[in-house]
């Protein structure tokens, strides 16, 4: 029991560290695409581990926290993907210009249009 509680608190501290890193990334990164990358990856991991930590501290809630974790895993990447796609479509250029732009419509070889 004490082991589980200690593990839970360690996971909560780890999760808040990841959340702090994500916030720092949002302040530090130059443009929107880098910010989305920092915000989503670090925030997903941080929220996931802190929620699982809460479930370990209070074992009655473990299944509910598992359900919340599944929802976070499903929704967070989809949301950031939509934000990045819509900002690309509305013409926002990246800060550092790179030579290869694989997302341009003429660069996509595949015929299936819904893969874009």
């Amino acid at each position: 029991m004490i082991l589980l509680t200690t593990l839970g608190y360690i996971m909560i501290i780890l999760g808040s560290l990841f959340l702090l890193l994500g916030a720092l990334g949002i302040v530090r990164m130059p443009d929107l695409y880098n910010r989305i990358q920092a915000g989503t990856k670090a925030t997903t991991l941080g929220a996931l581990s802190s929620i699982i930590g809460v479930g370990l501290v209070n074992p009655n809630w473990f299944f509910k926290t598992l359900i919340i974790a599944i929802f976070i895993v499903l929704t967070n990447p989809i949301g950031s993907h939509s934000i990045a796609r819509s900002s690309y479509k509305s013409g926002l250029k990246p800060e550092l210009q790179s030579e290869i732009d694989e997302y341009k419509p003429e660069n996509i070889q595949d015929e299936r249009s819904d893969l874009r």
Partner: peptide
């Protein structure tokens, strides 16, 4: 237009949940 492929698959999983 429709949303992208990823959003469609995600909604297909998320809607029943």
């Amino acid at each position: 237009s429709d949303a992208s492929f990823i959003v469609k698959i995600g909604v297909k999983i998320l809607f029943p949940l």
